[in-house]
Design a protein around this nucleic acid. Structure first.
Lengths: 156, 156
DNA sequence: TACTTACTTGGAGTGCACTCCAAGCAAGCG
DNA sequence: CGCTTGCTTGGAGTGCACTCCAAGTAAGTA
């Protein structure tokens, strides 16, 4: 049974906690959390290539390795990837995400800069939403003109 | 006086029509509407390079030329660029915009396909807005945690 | 006439975010 | 033992949307 199937089964078994985003449930409990890169790829939707690339550019903290040198991801890595995935969905440039990752690695004295980075990006996302909603109005208007024309065409 | 300055002056002179987006006011009245590529670049915010590239890939109908072969854009071209700009703001791929432009060139019998194209894209934009708003929640939450930490830091 | 400015072209280059390739190693299976 | 599968690496390739370059033409100004 793949990791995703396991998750889905859990969801089916316990619908009461579904949609409760706060404490993310990982496929394996802490202590038994050693995932292959392929499993993490399945979990995150990113390709193994991309996961290695994230590590290379410093967007991932260094991942633990097996005695043969293979990556063994832990639950904290999945949590980080979840958050990075959210930032990615907002359209944050990878360079900014790397900067944020650096700040996290530097420790607690970067809290202010981290907050400022996220707040600046929140503004960007806010403006982007407004922009999209504005263009959506134009799109709706245009579709409206075609709707009339289409009915005329259908009557022929 | 540049075209933009002219527009701004008009806006200042006649604030009553400001914000009335429907009938787009162009810098010059119909009949006197022959713009240089640099003027169109200023008007649209696109570079002359990009305007030529739009024409090359079929995203612009063929633009009229002067006797020396230079482009002379007309008001209808500005109107088209306004609309294309809106589509671009929604994140529509250039390939889709080109497809739409082709349909427009083919004539009225493509009304249905044009409407379908725009409606499909409206869905995409809708989903994107929802996605952004969702990630914004995560962002706000994260910023919240830093806000607390920052206050603690400031108290030191 | 010389210079400057703005336009023209095809094609090459850029930046971003992946995405893939070749070559090689380790484990499991018949 | 040979085969398959899945991992490893550095570096090259891809797709998108521009963005720029070189070489040339034409108009306007000193």
């Amino acid at each position: 049974m793949s990791l995703l199937e396991t998750l889905e089964a859990q969801e089916t078994e316990n619908p009461a906690t579904a949609g409760c985003a706060e404490p993310i449930r990982f496929p394996r409990p802490d202590g038994e959390d050693r995932y292959l890169i392929s499993e993490v790829a399945e979990y995150t939707g990113l390709s193994p290539h991309t996961l290695r690339w994230y590590e290379r550019i410093g967007l991932m903290p260094h991942v633990d390795r097996s005695h043969t040198g293979q990556r063994r991801f832990a639950n904290k890595d999945l949590g980080w990837l979840d958050f990075v995935g959210k930032l990615r969905l907002t359209g944050m440039p990878v360079a900014d995400m790397v900067r944020y990752a650096e700040l996290v690695r530097e420790g607690e004295h970067t809290f202010v800069e981290r907050r400022e980075l996220l707040e600046a990006h929140r503004e960007v996302v806010h403006n982007r939403i407004a922009e999209l909603q504005d263009s959506l109005t134009v799109l709706d208007h245009k579709i409206g003109t075609y709707a009339g024309a289409t009915r005329a065409q259908e009557r022929v």
